[in-house]
Write a protein that binds this DNA or RNA. Structure first.
Length: 478
DNA sequence: GTGGGGGAG
DNA sequence: CGTTCTCCCCCAC
């Protein structure tokens, strides 16, 4: 999963981008370059009428769609990854519409504009409750029980997920007692997030103010686990702990180290190749983060019932301890470090978890390191070049270059230029540059764009708006 | 900081 | 499809 910092688009950036897309995108409706548009159909002629063409939300969604297309294109060109994207007014809605065209597609949930209809809500209403992100098996069962006024049956024999009942969001919302307070009573319990009732109520009403977070340079934890048909002797456990510890230390070296001068270990370098040649370039490698805590988790198998059946349990128990610092040693072999870790830490931890000499039988063992103390001096985010950067490099140009607008294009409510003639003021620079033949007009170079101007008219443009802008010039570059 | 619950992919 | 493995966040103590 790749996260981009889309939130860095500020209003000033958006105002310009809206304007570009508004006039450059001649399709003005459902057929702009997304693979899917979900929404009530526009009435005949609606999209062609300039009066209907200025909603900020619509503009933002169009911008988002173009940006998504651009990002997917870049991701595939530069990294070879295909991807699926959803574009909507919130994270949850984006995620849900993203399901409509996959793989290798994108779908935009357009705002409801027709006769007060609320497509987002209709869309939300149509989902089975357990399909919503954030509502897992446990919450879904409670909600189904509430809707049905009886325990929700689920496919016996199937251990996971499956339900016979289909309770939709609409079903729940229409329930006479449906309210934040009621949901709080139903769903709150020890350990559950505070205000979960209101949160779920909002979610079902398409209200979701979850922020887009920054991608982290290193994970919060690294864990290795294995499951077992039968694991009930200490000797076997020690052997498995050794296997897991070796694997964990290799993972730590792979994910938490980087070459001092070069950039982090390349993806292709990870995997077996790099693992095989550890410790690699001992002198050049340094830790990006030092986990402080070691955690051992097991999942004991339930004892047999009197009737001979076994209750399947997924409850885990764990014990944590400070991570011995010798595991960061890079001159010693992985095998030696693992052996030491088992003897000096894990055996003791295991005894805490399972004091009895026998009688237990483990179905799973997990080994994790957590509490990363990140090494200072690293950039805090994992992003390479963020989206904001594409705009910021153009700031100087854009500032001399205010789009003068009569207000019909998106109402920002802040410092609009005066005048009403929709005129661009050329800054005098012409920014002709070479185009690759096959990139659809997008700049695939690693270099920051120059001013990113249109080769025809010189107008500064964010790269992902270039494609639409060329169509505006009547040049078919697809 | 530790231990457990719930969830996502 | 169901299962396994990994990772995430939240909370009480």
């Amino acid at each position: 999963m790749v996260e981009y910092n889309v939130e860095v688009l500020n209003h000033y950036d958006l105002e310009h981008a809206f304007f570009q897309l508004a006039r450059d995108d001649p399709t003005q409706g459902f057929e702009f370059d997304a693979t899917g548009i979900a929404g009530h159909p526009y009435p005949e002629g609606y999209a062609a009428d300039p009066a209907n063409y200025v909603g900020e939300e619509t503009m933002r969604l169009r911008l988002g769609s173009h940006l998504a297309l651009y990002m997917r294109h870049q991701l595939e060109q530069q990294k070879g990854y295909t991807s699926t994207v959803g574009i909507a007014t919130s994270k949850v809605l984006s995620k849900l519409v993203g399901n409509l065209n996959k793989p290798k597609g994108q779908t935009t949930l357009m705002p409801s504009i027709v006769g007060g209809a609320d497509y987002a809500q209709d869309f939300m209403d149509s989902h089975e409750i357990g399909k919503l992100p954030g509502i897992g098996f446990k919450l879904a069962q409670k909600l189904r029980e509430f809707a049905l006024q009886r325990p929700a049956a689920f496919d016996t024999g199937l251990v996971y997920g499956g339900t016979k009942e289909r309770i939709t969001v609409a079903h729940l919302r229409k329930h006479p007692e449906f309210s934040p307070e009621m949901l709080e009573k139903l769903l709150a319990g020890p350990g559950s997030p505070h205000g979960i009732g209101r949160k779920i109520w909002s979610l079902l009403n398409t209200v979701d103010d979850t922020e887009v977070g920054q991608a982290r340079p290193v994970p919060r934890q690294i864990s290795i686990e294995d499951s077992y048909i039968r694991l009930d002797t200490l000797a076997e456990v020690l052997k498995e702990l050794n296997v897991l510890a070796r694997s964990l230390i290799r993972r730590m070296r792979l994910d938490l180290m980087e070459n001092k001068d070069e950039e982090p270990v390349e993806e292709e370098e990870k995997g077996e190749v790099a693992a095989a040649k550890s410790p690699p370039n001992v002198e050049k490698m340094k830790w990006l983060a030092h986990p402080k805590t070691l955690r051992l988790t097991t999942r004991p198998r339930q004892p047999l019932q009197p009737d001979g059946t076994r209750v399947r349990s997924f409850k885990r128990i764990s014990h944590s301890a400070p991570l011995p610092t010798f595991v960061f040693g890079i001159t010693e072999s992985v095998d030696a470090l693992a052996e030491k870790l088992v003897n000096e830490a894990l055996v003791g931890m295991f005894r805490k978890l399972h004091p009895e000499k026998a009688g237990w039988n483990l179905s799973l063992v997990n080994l994790a390191v957590t509490n990363m103390a990140e090494t200072a001096g690293e950039s805090k985010t994992a992003d390479g070049r963020d989206i904001g950067g594409m705009f910021k490099r153009q700031d100087k140009v854009l500032k001399e270059f205010r789009v003068l607008d009569d207000g019909s294009i998106g109402d920002s409510g802040e410092d609009k230029g005066k005048g009403g003639d929709n005129e661009y003021v050329d800054n005098g620079e012409s920014n002709l540059r070479d185009e690759d033949e096959d990139d659809g007009g997008w700049d695939d170079s690693e270099e920051p764009l120059d001013t990113g101007g249109c080769p025809v008219c010189g107008m500064p443009l964010p790269p992902f708006a270039m494609h639409a802008h060329m169509r505006f010039h009547g040049l078919d570059i697809t």
